Simulated assay, not measured.
Amino acid sequence: MKHIKYDGSIILTSDDVADAVIEYAAALAGGDRADTVAVPAVAHDGTMTTTKILIGPASEVVIEDAEEDELEVENGEFVERLRAAARTFGHREPIHANTRDDLTDA
């Protein structure tokens, strides 16, 4: 699970959704575009909800790990829709620096 921090709000969602949101935000910024995204999220009481956010070139989106891994749910359709939308900007791969934790310096 991850937290999406956006405009003073904290959205609890799955790892794949958070990653797709930030990759889409990068693609939108690169294309100087904006979009409204309905993010599948977990409410404070543990139920599923949707949080709409506006992502544009000036959006400040931060993703942080969360401890609530037992609430992780699959959101493959949402993730594929965002990644397909990002590809419309001409990017075949997700937009991000190579910052995976499992990489080591050689």
Score class of each variant (00 low, 15 high):
residue 52 K to E: 15
residue 45 D to G: 01
residue 77 E to Y: 01
residue 54 L to K: 14
residue 1 M to N: 04
residue 99 T to C: 04
residue 40 P to R: 11
residue 81 R to P: 01
residue 97 A to W: 01
residue 25 A to L: 00
residue 94 P to C: 10
residue 12 L to N: 06
residue 67 E to N: 10
residue 58 A to C: 02
residue 91 H to A: 08
residue 2 K to Y: 04
residue 8 G to L: 04
residue 27 A to I: 03
residue 104 T to A: 05
residue 23 E to Q: 13
residue 94 P to M: 11
residue 92 R to I: 03
residue 11 I to C: 01
residue 19 D to R: 08
residue 24 Y to K: 10
residue 48 M to S: 14
residue 69 D to L: 08
residue 5 K to N: 11
residue 11 I to L: 00
residue 54 L to A: 10
residue 73 V to R: 12
residue 28 L to R: 05
residue 63 I to W: 04
residue 60 E to I: 11
residue 20 A to N: 03
residue 87 R to W: 05
residue 88 T to R: 03
residue 30 G to Q: 01
residue 85 A to H: 01
residue 100 R to G: 03
residue 15 D to V: 08
residue 17 V to P: 10
residue 51 T to K: 07
residue 35 D to H: 11
residue 70 E to F: 13
residue 50 T to A: 03
residue 15 D to C: 02
residue 56 G to N: 15
residue 67 E to S: 14
residue 68 E to D: 08
residue 38 A to N: 15
residue 22 I to N: 07
residue 73 V to K: 11
residue 90 G to F: 11
residue 40 P to G: 02
residue 87 R to N: 08
residue 13 T to C: 12
residue 16 D to H: 12
residue 12 L to Y: 14
residue 30 G to E: 13
residue 48 M to R: 14
residue 98 N to F: 04
residue 60 E to L: 11
residue 88 T to D: 06
residue 92 R to C: 00
residue 55 I to W: 09
residue 61 V to Y: 06
residue 14 S to Q: 08
residue 66 A to R: 03
residue 30 G to W: 07
residue 105 D to H: 09
residue 23 E to D: 12
residue 70 E to I: 07
residue 39 V to R: 12
residue 68 E to G: 02
residue 72 E to S: 04
residue 61 V to W: 03
residue 29 A to N: 10
residue 103 L to S: 00
residue 58 A to S: 14
residue 54 L to F: 13
residue 79 V to T: 14
residue 83 R to A: 00
residue 105 D to W: 06
residue 60 E to C: 02
residue 55 I to M: 05
residue 32 D to V: 09
residue 7 D to Q: 09
residue 74 E to S: 15
residue 30 G to L: 15
residue 44 H to K: 15
residue 71 L to Y: 08
residue 5 K to E: 07
residue 21 V to A: 04
residue 58 A to W: 07
residue 89 F to A: 05
residue 47 T to D: 03
residue 18 A to V: 06
residue 21 V to L: 04
residue 36 T to G: 13
residue 72 E to A: 06
residue 8 G to W: 00
residue 64 E to V: 13
residue 54 L to H: 14
residue 97 A to Q: 08
residue 59 S to K: 06
residue 80 E to F: 02
residue 93 E to S: 13
residue 65 D to S: 12
residue 63 I to D: 03
residue 52 K to I: 06
